[in-house]
Simulated assay, not measured.
Amino acid sequence: MTPTLDTFVQALKEQLAAPKADLEHNIRAVLAEMVEKMDLVSKQELERQKIALEQANQRMNALQQQIESLQNQIKK
């Protein structure tokens, strides 16, 4: 390419870069807002809730066994 054409192409690239960056920024903002509205939770929060549920189930099973044991004692 000639120096004039190279300069023109470079200037054109620079002019296109700014709207591209603005568009990317705006798209990211819109996507972030959409995700926030979807009320999603993080993978870490999901794992914490899963562990809490497992612990609650274990405790419930232990209490159920205690109830059954007490009921058996009362029947005797």
Rank of each mutant, 00 (worst) to 15 (best):
A52E: 10
M60T: 07
R59V: 05
E54G: 05
A18V: 12
E24Q: 08
N26C: 07
L23K: 11
N61P: 00
A62Y: 03
Q44N: 14
E33P: 03
T2S: 15
Q64R: 04
T2E: 02
S42W: 12
L23N: 10
N72E: 06
K13Y: 02
Q66R: 11
Q66D: 04
E68G: 03
N72M: 04
S42A: 05
Q15G: 13
H25L: 14
I51Q: 14
M60W: 08
K76Y: 06
V9T: 01
L70E: 03
E45C: 01
E45A: 08
T2R: 15
Q44I: 13
D6S: 06
L63K: 01
V41G: 02
A62M: 09
M60A: 14
A62P: 00
S42G: 04
N26I: 07
R28E: 15
K76D: 06
V35W: 09
R59Y: 10
Q55H: 12
A32Y: 04
L5S: 03
L53D: 12
Q65Y: 04
Q64A: 07
L53Y: 13
Q10I: 01
D6N: 08
S69D: 10
Q64D: 10
V9P: 01
Q71E: 11
A29F: 01
K76N: 11
D6Q: 08
N72H: 07
L5T: 09
L5P: 00
M34P: 00
E36K: 15
E68L: 06
E24M: 05
A29C: 06
P3H: 00
T2G: 13
K76G: 05
K75W: 02
S69G: 09
I27M: 10
A56H: 13
K75F: 05
E54S: 04
T4P: 00
N57H: 04
A21Y: 00
E33Q: 12
E36G: 15
A18R: 01
K20Y: 02
V41H: 12
D39F: 11
I74K: 01
A17H: 04
A11V: 00
Q15H: 11
A18Y: 05
N61Q: 13
K43W: 09
R59H: 12
E36M: 13
L31Y: 08
L31M: 13
I67M: 04
Q44E: 15
E24H: 02
Q73W: 02
D6A: 09
E24T: 08
K37T: 05
E68Q: 05
Q64N: 08
L63Y: 06
P3D: 03
A56F: 08
A29S: 14
L16P: 00
R59A: 13
L16T: 08
V41R: 09
L63S: 07
K43F: 07
E14R: 01
A56M: 09
Q55P: 00
L31N: 13
Q71L: 06
A29W: 01
Q65C: 00
E68F: 05
V30P: 03
Q58F: 07
A21S: 10
Q71D: 04
